[in-house]
Write a protein that binds this DNA or RNA. Structure first.
Lengths: 308, 308
DNA sequence: CATCGCTCATCACCCCAGCTTATGACCCCA
DNA sequence: TGGGGTCATAAGCTGGGGTGATGAGCGATG
């Protein structure tokens, strides 16, 4: 790992979450005082905070008047950007709260890592909006672990990705994931007109997670007809590390669509279409056979888009 | 606007950005001390901060040992969630920095509101990663304002959405946007099997932005063959307000795909397919005729995916 | 016209979160 | 056995952000 040139940290250039929340509250209420009340602080505190945020950013955000406050044009834009930060923080909060995992939770969820990482926080935020008092706890692990937790009665509801429902569990498909081949813009594969033949994918040197990761296993078995995966170009310990290597142009990789959705949208990565091999897999909610989810579990299932 | 029941603010439950950044740095470096150095703080500061973050979250994040530190399982998950917050903060920072708009910027960009809100921050983050010393300034306004700024020499490069390149400007298509009909899950339109006929859309009561907004104009002219838009169900001042109303089930609306991408992915909203009317529009980079972008402008264009 | 009710700003004061430096314990390796 | 690395603890300082009191601008109301 490269060494540590001191950098001005982001936290010094971005207002803290409290200030961003304040800005959103001001936008909603059109008044510093009411925004302050919503956040449980005094009106002078809000006034001072807003002022120091404007000083820090060097932009006037709010037009104050004796009969209320309105966002300036720039303020509206900044507020929209701030909303994204706050939403990410809300997902973070919902996730960590579940991870804290109090034993007395009304709903105990077990999920595969991919789902826990990319989908679950959003569901939990939605669930909280709908039933603010439902305490949820979360256990994250691979499919086998999820099944184990369900059988042992340590979880009420599980989420796994994979081709089949584990034996002894019932399940419902709640969505789909797909492994996609990605490469940095400019890589020769991104200039192809025709899809990449599976055989060529199997023959190529890819950036991979270390042996044993779920993604790698799925890929290897999907390519078994072509002799399985070739020699890896690089073996890395985390999805994030793989993405970073691909973005920096080290080579192509195969990752879950969920993991690369943002990078594809921002065009930091390009998808390479492949033919001759199917890399889709279902996302499933699962529960012990016979124990049809009810109560909060059913509520959460509804939010995932499942019709049960 | 409803009244202000005091709520525990998010900021008290989520570690501040500095702490999240620290966690990411620890994950990268595998050492508190090196992470501290990267952030320009002392090792005891990092130690204390990490400890208080773990106490706040009630989760052990890092396994310390006399020869380094590694994330725990829960820590890895928390780190992934934290990364999203930090990335949103980076986009916020890039955006506001441009908005501050120092006169001596190397690159002065003018953009329509939609592009400034949803796409530009990501491009600026990417540009910064690639050319850390390029100062960018941003002017945001409607298409006419963008054209005006370019003609007046107050901006070097513009971004607009719309059907045609404004007179006197050259341009390149960098992407596409589409107006989509959205409704809350469960709305009758979301249960249709066949696409909604345009005539039915025109006849319906929709939640709309106030008269004069670009989206509303485009929609109205696209539906002119069917008599234009019907009576609005509700008129609201911002895209955000419209989205909130739709999510809460007030009724359907028509919004830019960019604006609702997240809500669609999280299934808070559903897209209703429509037939008989085309609601696509190109996203274009534009510049004064003849002044082909060069230098940083060209660099930025490359990041948008344009081939120029 | 005076007064009330809402807006926001300013001032004085206070407190604690988070920083620093100095130090110590643990582990590994040469 | 000492020197490099790890992390933790302790003591002390500082400043950002909080409170509460107060005042000024504007509009509606009797």
């Amino acid at each position: 790992m490269s060494d540590a040139e001191p950098r001005v940290p982001l936290a010094h250039r971005v207002p803290d979450l409290g200030a961003l929340e304040l800005l959103l509250a001001i936008a909603r209420h059109g008044s510093l005082g009411r925004a302050a009340r919503e956040l449980g602080i005094s009106q002078p505190a809000a006034s001072g905070r807003l002022r120091s945020m404007e000083r820090q950013l060097g932009v006037a955000l709010v037009d104050r008047s004796p009969r209320g406050s309105r966002l300036t044009g720039a303020g509206a834009l900044v507020t929209d950007w701030a909303r994204r930060v706050v939403e990410a923080a809300e997902a973070f909060d919902a996730g960590t709260q579940a991870l804290r995992g109090r034993r007395d939770s009304r709903l105990r969820v077990a999920a595969s890592l991919t789902i826990a990482e990319y989908l679950l926080p959003g569901w939990l935020v939605a669930l909280r909006a709908q039933r603010p008092d439902t305490a949820v706890s979360l256990l994250a692990g691979n499919s086998a672990a999820v099944a184990r937790w369900l059988f042992a009665g340590e979880a009420d509801l599980g989420f796994v990705e994979g081709l089949a429902v584990p034996e002894g569990l019932d399940g419902a498909v709640i969505g789909h994931d797909r492994l996609v081949v990605v490469a940095a813009p400019g890589h020769s594969w991104t200039r192809r007109r025709a899809p990449l033949p599976a055989a060529e994918l199997a023959a190529a040197s890819l950036i991979l997670r270390e042996r044993g990761s779920g993604t790698r296993q799925v890929l290897d078995s999907a390519l078994s007809r072509w002799g399985g995966l070739g020699e890896p170009l690089l073996e890395l310990a985390s999805t994030t590390a793989v993405k970073a290597a691909v973005v920096s142009g080290a080579g192509p990789a195969v990752l879950s669509e969920l993991a690369v959705a943002e990078e594809l949208a921002a065009r930091r990565l390009r998808e390479v279409r492949v033919e001759g091999v199917s890399l889709g897999r279902a996302l499933r909610a699962v529960w012990p056979r016979g124990q049809t989810p009810a109560g909060p579990a059913r509520e959460l299932l509804g939010l995932t888009g499942s019709r049960l």
